[in-house]
């Protein structure tokens, strides 16, 4: 029990504490590509602090709107508790990969319902897009994780990690990992897939009426997703040798996630935003193809 609580606190502190830094790194990368100086690395922390203290402007929207940010960040933190960060996932006894997928979707639910509740047409368009992004991207994540599950014979994360580390690299897992990587860009809402927010088109979409602490929570949730999905990718789809010493695994994990942050940041900087229909066809054609190929390889044992 004490171990569970300790791990849980560790996960939450690391995810919440480091997520803005990852965002800061991405902003810096963007600035480098732009030939700019760019903001300091801690700028996202400052942004969040500023937003937390700012006045919260509330449209007459009721409870669903009010609960949105809390539910969104809560669900993301819950997903964080199911995430292995080199350490075993603290809540491994409470949920497996499917539960993880659904808690991530729950964060989307909070965004979408909050968007609908705000009563702004832009929020409706944005929430509608968010929903479409969820069902073009989540299946890819699901297929990739199911591939890993088929390889491991189990849907729980610790089993998957152990079995992959033991079995070594395989074709199917490479496919699944690539699919997961391609979906990662959309999961963290970066270009070319920041379609739901699209500030030049629909002015942050579902967040258009958000301000102050509510917006801060949504931002934190979106930053945290980068670390969560990055860690899943590193832990599940990279056959890492385990040192057995958790601080070492933890550092290795975050080092690799750092590499992912740079990759995501670069892709983010050199792409225009796709349209929602283009992104859907992108995911349905290319990514699903890659993911299903992984699944097929997995079921023939490769």
């Amino acid at each position: 029990m004490a171990q569970v609580i300790g791990l849980a606190v560790l996960n939450l502190v690391l995810i919440v504490g480091l997520a803005p830094l990852a965002e800061g790194v991405m902003r810096r990368i963007r600035a480098i590509v732009h030939s700019r100086k760019g903001p300091p690395l801690i700028q996202p922390y400052l942004d969040i602090m500023k937003l937390l203290a700012k006045e919260d402007l509330v449209p007459e929207a009721g409870m669903v709107w009010q609960i949105g940010p809390t539910l969104c960040l809560g669900a993301v933190l819950m997903a964080a508790l199911l995430t292995p960060l080199g350490t075993p996932p603290p809540l491994a006894f409470a949920g497996d990969a499917i539960v993880f997928i659904y808690f991530v979707a729950l964060a989307g639910v909070a965004i979408i319902l909050g968007g609908f509740a705000s009563g702004n047409p832009y929020a409706y368009v944005g929430a509608s897009r968010e929903m479409m992004m969820i069902f073009s991207v989540e299946p890819v994540v699901a297929i990739a994780l199911v591939t890993a599950a088929v390889k491991a014979g189990s849907l729980s994360f610790p089993e998957m990690m152990e079995s992959y580390a033991a079995a070594g690299p395989s074709v199917s897992m490479v496919f699944a990992g690539v699919a997961f990587l391609l979906a990662l860009q959309a999961q963290v809402g970066k270009l070319p897939f920041d379609i739901a927010e699209a500030d030049q088109e629909i002015m942050e979409g579902p967040f258009i009426e958000r301000s102050g602490p509510g917006l801060a929570l949504f931002k934190m949730a979106s930053y945290a997703k980068m670390l969560i999905f990055g860690s899943i990718l590193v832990q599940i789809f990279v056959p890492l040798p385990r040192s057995g010493l958790w601080p070492v695994d933890l550092v290795v994990n975050f080092a690799l996630v750092g590499v992912l942050v740079v990759v995501v940041g670069l892709v983010n900087a050199v792409n225009p935003r796709l349209r929602i229909d283009q992104s859907m066809s992108y995911f349905s054609r290319i990514v699903v193809f890659v993911a299903v190929a992984g699944l097929v390889f997995a079921s023939i044992g490769a």
Binding site: I32, V33, H34, S35, R36, K37, L266, A269, V270, N271
Partner: peptide, 16 residues
């Protein structure tokens, strides 16, 4: 073309 863009971008260095 993404690589070409990257070369343009990174070739310029920081201009701020």
């Amino acid at each position: 073309s993404k690589l070409k863009e990257a070369i343009i971008c990174l070739g310029a260095g920081r201009v701020t």
